[in-house]
Write a protein that binds this DNA or RNA. Structure first.
Lengths: 343, 343
DNA sequence: CTGAAAGCGCTAACAC
DNA sequence: GTGTTAGCGCTTTCAG
């Protein structure tokens, strides 16, 4: 008990504590623990300092360090809804990529609150983050981008004044439509998202363009909207399936909606793909749980997250980011086949 | 252009910049921007400072602030896999609760790496976080808890030396078994998780105890194991369903497994719940997407996250945390009914 | 009512 | 090789 207060787990040890006990200067401690002692500190001295540091279970204070360095090695990820499996995959990919580059991820869920940029900006400004990735379907104004900080990367939404990772939505829809058309479908309906975002407008436009391209007339009754909920999607699908001339295939804006189509079809005694082909969008895990497994346009979610991370990291390091577009890929599974008339 | 360099968006403005331009001291700026100027700074002075601050779009530096305050208003959340919908719900609840208490959430995904405590501890130590929530199925050693920092709350795993939020797993299984037994089932199988964690041992033990309680003999052939994957679960379920005396009901350790049971049943031409009752565990969104909707034991995931947040926040504020147990609730839906023999 | 000054814990020039 | 020192930007007594 002679050596000052022995164990005092109240206050974590500081570099100064280590220095005092090891009988060296604080600078030496810093050099040693950050591994920059090469050729500056003798090996015995270093080992001694290390031992003392471990003894006190010394951990450099993170705030002090990032204050000094001007870097927190943390990036923020802003998503509309983490509980959505698609976004959680993006998150997973982002977190992994960030960790691989020695960065941590701070998560902010906007809950689709339309005026999120304001309060999110507040939170970011009062947190030690070096940059942020924003997953948003709607484009942001330059002002909104600015309040988010100096290093902003947008995903899906396009933006002036920020790097962005875009998805080739039109390409994805086109592949799905070509697939259905090649199978022989001519009565193809679109179970569309009941949201105003640009991405969904693109999907609808591409759906129409694809029909147009092979001379199929667009029928307003073949386009119904539903939010991404199972009940609403089921109801909307039912509406299509009880038409006088029901579609032989339904293209959905989301895999969840496709699940609704399955339910509606089952309720009406229709078999998939025999009586009805279904194509989804996103390729979340659910797609492989449905029976039969869902043909769907896959978005490489975790890859999207990873690329966005690379992009912010680039911005932070002073490289300017060029926007990039990620291709989508149709995954053909059991839910699509030739229409009944061809069998 | 007389007023020094006009716009210089390179370096963010500091409190000193504001002070200089506003012609006041840095202390005044601090008082004003933190809203502590009441009765200390004149109203005109305050408004003036505020105007200048806004003009420079001044934001107090987060690292400096938390260095000074010793608080970062950030907590870490460590989960085995964010992409798992159950964990993402926990995350969602935690993030909301944290934000309501002015805290942000840093996310760390262990990917179920068995030696996560080491590297996670490293990351936490080098980040400005005030505490952490750990979702782990396996109990942690006191040493592992210690490296995670001073304020640790465990979810599901029990631990000495840390607060914890526990789930009443046994109660949940019991409810499910009572439900099936009351419906008249006597041949009840268990599609168990193929993982060694305590929670799964509890489930198996409770399954047996429930059978035992009403004098049903335990049949080894009625217990099969599968990981939480659709193919493996389907195969395992099939194994049960092709027995000479197949079960009339299957209790699953996870909703994903239940989805596998559906697939196996469909493949064998069995109807749910007519020929087979199925009960899941977790109540993720998938439960309501299956046809018929799945009877399952609901874990209030986002509530679990929220409670864990309250608990760490308590620890951080110096209150000692008492561990608590969250009750689970059986949600009866369409996948369970009386066995065929009773119809 | 306002300003001066100390110091949170760390890193990196720069001396010695 | 090792120590001294000067801040990073902020909050908060303490004087005036």
């Amino acid at each position: 008990m002679t050596e000052a207060k022995r164990s005092e787990p109240k206050r974590p040890a500081t570099g100064a504590d280590v220095a005092r006990i090891a009988g060296v200067s604080q600078a030496t401690v810093s050099l040693v623990v950050t591994g920059k002692s090469e050729g500056r500190i003798s090996d015995e001295q270093r080992d001694h300092v290390l031992k003392v540091a471990r003894g006190l279970s010394y951990q450099p204070n993170a705030s002090a360090r990032s204050l000094r360095l001007g870097r927190a090695r943390t990036i923020a990820l802003i998503v509309p809804n983490v509980a959505n499996p698609y976004f959680s995959s993006v998150l997973l990919g982002a977190e992994r990529a960030a960790r691989g580059r020695e960065h941590a991820v701070m998560l902010l869920d906007t809950g689709s609150d339309p005026d999120w940029p304001g309060w999110v900006g507040q939170i970011l400004a009062t947190r030690a983050v070096d940059g942020c990735i924003v997953y948003a379907a709607d484009p942001l104004t330059p002002g909104q981008v600015r309040v988010l900080g100096r290093h902003v990367v947008l995903v899906e939404a396009n933006a002036r004044g920020a790097g962005s990772v875009q998805l080739d939505i039109a390409g994805g829809i086109r592949q799905a439509m070509v697939h259905l058309i090649e199978l022989g479908h001519r009565r193809i309906a679109h179970l569309a998202a009941d949201f105003p975002q640009e991405t969904f407008q693109v999907r609808e436009a591409t759906y129409r363009a694809s029909l147009n391209a092979i001379g199929i007339a667009y029928r307003p009754a073949y386009v119904v909207k539903a939010p991404f909920q199972i009940e609403a999607s089921t109801a909307a699908a039912r509406q299509l399936l009880v038409l006088d001339q029901p579609p032989t295939a339904i293209l959905c804006d989301d895999d969840l909606q496709a699940a609704g189509v399955y339910k509606a079809a089952t309720a009406l005694g229709l078999r998939i793909p025999g009586d009805l082909s279904v194509v989804g969008f996103d390729d979340i895990e659910l797609a492989r749980m449905l029976e039969p497994e869902l043909t769907t346009v896959a978005i490489p979610a975790s890859d999207v997250g990873a690329r966005a991370v690379e992009m912010v990291l680039g911005l932070i390091d002073g490289r300017s980011a060029r926007s990039q577009t990620i291709p989508l890929e149709l995954r053909v599974r059991g839910s699509s086949g030739p229409p009944a008339v061809y069998r």
